[in-house]
């Protein structure tokens, strides 16, 4: 992040978010210990973690927004920018590379018009590369939302993202 986080907004966490965060705080010795859980809880509700949401979490955990942002930006599955309804995680590690994952990335790009790191204009999908998904015997693999797709080929991509599908 190049810009500084604007000081003090009055963004509030929802009741649901607060309840879930407080349940985590209950079993750890320090409030700040739940930083990652809290970011994930808020992200589950809002899809991503905005600057305002980040500040609200930091206030609740009694830590600085800068420290929390240092944590948030460390982890690749905390999204500090908006993502689509579904995130496509395409494995680009070794076993999937051997089986041609580079071609699949290009295939998704051809069908959805987005490259790695980009979100479709209709906000349906964000395409991200991911490290080995632990399904290397079924390479190449990818996830769409919570669903794992194995032995992915052009047909899989067409069925999922082709015209009239997405």
């Amino acid at each position: 992040m190049s810009e500084l986080i604007p000081v003090c907004t009055d963004e509030q966490l929802s009741e649901t978010e607060l309840a879930a965060i407080d349940a985590e705080i209950a079993h750890v010795p320090y409030r700040a210990s739940v930083a990652i859980d809290a970011l994930k809880i808020v992200q589950a509700q809002r899809g991503w973690v905005s600057d305002d949401a980040l500040q609200a979490i930091a206030r609740h955990l009694k830590m600085s927004a800068e420290e929390l942002d240092g944590i948030a930006t460390f982890y690749n599955l905390i999204f500090r920018r908006p993502v689509g309804d579904k995130v496509i995680l395409l494995c680009d590690s070794i076993s999937c590379w051997i089986k041609g994952c580079d071609g699949l990335t290009q295939g998704v790009t051809d069908l959805l018009g987005v490259g790695p790191g980009e979100t479709t204009p209709d906000k349906a999908y964000t395409l991200l590369p991911i490290t080995c998904l632990g399904a290397c015997d079924k390479a190449p693999v990818m996830m769409v939302g919570e669903e794992l797709y194995e032995n992915v080929d052009e047909q899989t991509l067409h069925a999922l993202f082709g015209k009239g599908q997405a």
Binding site: A35, I36, Y75, N76, T131
Partner: peptide, 24 residues
């Protein structure tokens, strides 16, 4: 505890940092 990504979390002392809510 569900992680938030990064391979380094598998290294046991980094994992402990992550469980404490810090950078791994």
């Amino acid at each position: 505890h569900v992680s938030a990504g990064r391979y380094i979390c598998g290294e046991e002392t980094a994992l402990i940092s992550a469980l404490e809510g810090k950078r791994a």
